[in-house]
Design a protein around this nucleic acid. Structure first.
Lengths: 111, 111
DNA sequence: CGCACTTTTGGTCAAATCGCCAAGAAAAGC
DNA sequence: GCTTTTCTTGGCGATTTGACCAAAAGTGCG
């Protein structure tokens, strides 16, 4: 197992590891969107959105295409759905554990 | 779609987005390992490995269990394989594109 | 060309991350 | 109790990231 392989995987994951960028990827699942639409949806500053898109593009997760004044972004990750499912499995388990722990604390304190 | 959901997913991805941590997760696919084994495999400083493990644990990706002097870590992500496949698809496409681009440059310069 | 519109880039600064060192904590053996 | 082994934590400097502002770049229109 080469060390460079892990570095490359990490680079892709790092590009995804931001709430706004995940939101953008999720939005693009329904088809291409221009920057203005993405900006309107996610709500962040336009220049911030542009930089996030640049990160996603450098990572090879999206593609950009200029048409007139607008630039349209397209998702390049067909397996995003199963990906998110897997992450959500971790999230939900972590949440349920936290609830259990809080329940245990509650139980202990009210005893 | 709630903004908090994306933040939670991002937290998990962020925990994975490091070469060494990906290497650890990969190692744990074959079953639990004590810190000393992980340390020996990945090669980083022991305290660094310990902190990486702490990150993975906080994210809910692994579980730790003390047995005697040693602490064993176990993978908690059954879907890691498909996950990595998806990431590798992005990586390999990005690589092939880079090679194509380099080829085009070579072609142009040797013409 | 001048102007409006859309998007990107450069710069700055606070916050987070990373890797190492020193020190602490937990278990086992003498 | 003391030492050794195994692992974690605190702290420090160096690097990176993220968000905003100002400015620039690319496009279409009169």
């Amino acid at each position: 197992m080469n060390r460079a392989v892990f570095a490359q995987r990490a680079a892709v994951l790092k590009a995804m590891a931001h709430p706004t960028r995940l939101m953008i990827l999720d939005l693009l699942r329904d088809g291409e969107r221009c920057v203005c639409e993405i900006h309107a949806t996610v709500g962040s500053d336009l220049t911030t959105v542009s930089k996030h898109l640049s990160v996603l593009r450098s990572a090879g997760l999206v593609r950009d295409e200029r048409r007139g004044q607008q630039v349209f972004y397209t998702l390049l990750v067909p397996c995003l759905n199963s990906f998110v499912e897997c992450v959500d499995a971790v999230v939900s388990r972590r949440l349920s554990e936290a609830l259990e722990a809080r329940g245990a604390i509650l139980e202990a304190t009210t005893r």
